[in-house]
């Protein structure tokens, strides 16, 4: 009887702990938090390169960064050699040696059955958790297809247990005009991203917490 009582109490307390941890994560990462981040000299960046157009868009954004992000981790799907070449070419062009390209097992190939995709998703999650634990990036950049979800979960998990302090930014593809992609919607509704950037004003009406890309203004200094 006593054992049962303690067990129930323990479960409830643990539940409360989890909920509190997640809520404090949401507060830390919401758009409205106005805390002042400690300044760092440089940081590490982890970018998930989707494939094709996603990779192009992501590198387009990364081209604006210089040595303030002095360590770069590129995550690509293990079947995608073109993105690897593009990432390597980009880093070569700025004479940077400090980068790695990590291959993550794809969570779902086109045409794969639903049942076996459960296992391959678990497999890519395991990979993502190990990778984030090992590299501990300061910034995780995502912009698209399924592969980015395990990485986002891993980064959020280690941030919730306060092992790392990570900023997660998702930039929706310019192809999405009326509706977020599935990955984008998952991250939006779970509130797991610090900023979700959208490229069309139509999306802003439907997803008010997202940031419209043309609302960023040049700072007058």
């Amino acid at each position: 009887m006593f054992f049962f009582f303690f067990f129930v109490t323990a479960v409830i307390l643990f539940g409360i702990l989890l909920v509190t941890a997640f809520l404090s994560f949401l507060v830390r990462h919401s758009n409205h938090s106005s805390k002042i981040k400690p300044k760092k000299a440089n940081a590490s960046l982890c970018a998930v390169l989707g494939s094709g157009g996603h990779t192009t868009e992501m590198l387009e954004l990364i081209k604006n960064f210089d040595n303030e992000f002095n360590m770069r981790i590129y995550i690509i799907a293990d079947t995608d050699t073109i993105s690897e070449d593009k990432a390597v070419a980009h880093e070569k062009s700025r004479n940077n040696e400090k980068f790695v390209v990590e291959k993550i097992p794809r969570s779902r190939e086109v045409g794969q059955s639903y049942f076996s995709s459960v296992f391959s998703t678990l497999n890519s999650c395991r990979f993502a958790f190990k990778l984030i634990y090992r590299t501990r990036p300061d910034l995780v950049l995502l912009n698209g297809p399924g592969t980015c979800i395990p990485v986002a979960f891993a980064a959020a998990f280690f941030d919730i247990i306060r092992l790392i302090d990570t900023v997660i930014v998702y930039e929706e593809s310019i192809c999405r005009v009326n509706k977020l992609s599935l990955s984008g919607a998952i991250l939006y509704y779970l509130g797991m991203v610090d900023s979700l950037i959208i490229q069309w004003p139509e999306l802003k009406k439907r997803y008010p917490r997202a940031i419209y890309i043309k609302d960023f203004k040049e700072k007058s200094t």
Partner: peptide, 16 residues
């Protein structure tokens, strides 16, 4: 859209 403004926003978030 100007991607350099997005980059600036991200730098601010990270604190670099």
């Amino acid at each position: 859209a100007a991607k350099n403004l997005v980059a600036e926003h991200i730098r601010e978030l990270v604190g670099v």
